[in-house]
């Protein structure tokens, strides 16, 4: 592994994104627009609807977006032959994966900063804990999305398949993360499943920051551990040799 090569990959991915103006603009603006939509839905209703759901959505959006973007871009890298070319060069598998994580982590930080800032200062999202912590958790979630995207792209041969991994891998996690039914009220079997899904911890962490000043490092640690595991498995799927 070499920091020089990791940085080269990250820089290249960011240059590619910068070239693609439409994608870059959508990455920056869409999450904020979605948060604004959520705020608008609840604006005439009594109660704290936006403040109750907002933090969870702030966890979900970067996770989903980065999952999709990463799985498609790395699949493109596999099918265009550039990955094979890199792997016959002195490139460590981790250089490749970490380069992507760094690049998309930075994009996620920017994206979430805009979204969190808008929510807290313009849309009056109630946050008891620190807004910085909200941002940090959002970035860790995005890194998890990137890591899972890197992993699943190994199991897709076409972009259609890659996109299908979103309903397969992401939507069950959204359903079971406690947003629709509190996790402790789920049927026992599903509660156990939701206990092993990383997004549950991401949403827990977001809600904890929003409603308390309790430390959330346990939940954040679980999310980060899943990201590390996904990258490690992802490294196994990068083959320098094929049959």
């Amino acid at each position: 592994m070499s920091p020089r090569i990791t940085a080269a990959v990250a820089l290249r991915v960011l240059t590619q994104l910068r070239r693609d103006h439409r994608t870059a603009a959508m990455l920056l603006v869409l999450p904020t627009l979605l948060m604004s939509l959520l705020w608008w839905m609840f604006v005439d209703l009594p109660g704290a609807g936006f403040s109750a759901l907002g933090p969870a959505l702030l966890a979900l959006v970067p996770f989903i977006v980065m999952f999709l973007v990463t799985s498609v871009t790395t699949l493109r890298e596999r099918t265009s032959g550039t990955l094979e070319r890199l792997l016959v060069m002195p490139m460590g598998k981790l250089d490749f994966l970490l380069g992507y994580l760094v690049a998309f982590g930075l994009v996620a930080a920017l994206q979430s900063a805009v979204a969190v800032g808008t929510c807290v200062w313009l849309l009056d999202l109630r946050v008891v804990g620190s807004a910085w912590l909200l941002l940090l958790v959002a970035v860790v979630d995005a890194v998890l999305g990137t890591a899972l995207g890197l992993l699943v792209s190994a199991f897709a041969r076409t972009e259609f398949q890659a996109v299908q991994f979103m309903p397969a891998v992401v939507i069950p996690q959204i359903l079971l993360c406690g947003l629709f039914v509190a996790r402790d009220q789920l049927p026992r079997a599903l509660e156990v499943v939701s206990d092993v899904l990383p997004l549950s911890y991401a949403v827990d962490a977001m809600q904890a920051v929003a409603t308390s000043t309790d430390p959330v490092w346990g939940d954040v640690g679980v999310v980060a551990a899943y990201a590390v595991a996904a990258v490690a498995l992802g490294a196994l799927t990068l083959r320098r040799q094929t049959a």
């Binding site: 240059t15 693609d20 265009s80 032959g81 550039t82 070319r85 016959v88």
Partner: peptide, 15 residues
């Protein structure tokens, strides 16, 4: 020490 050029050009189209 080895350079390889595959049949389909393996470069980044968007750079």
């Amino acid at each position: 020490r080895v350079g390889y050029v595959s049949q389909a050009p393996s470069v980044y189209d968007d750079l």
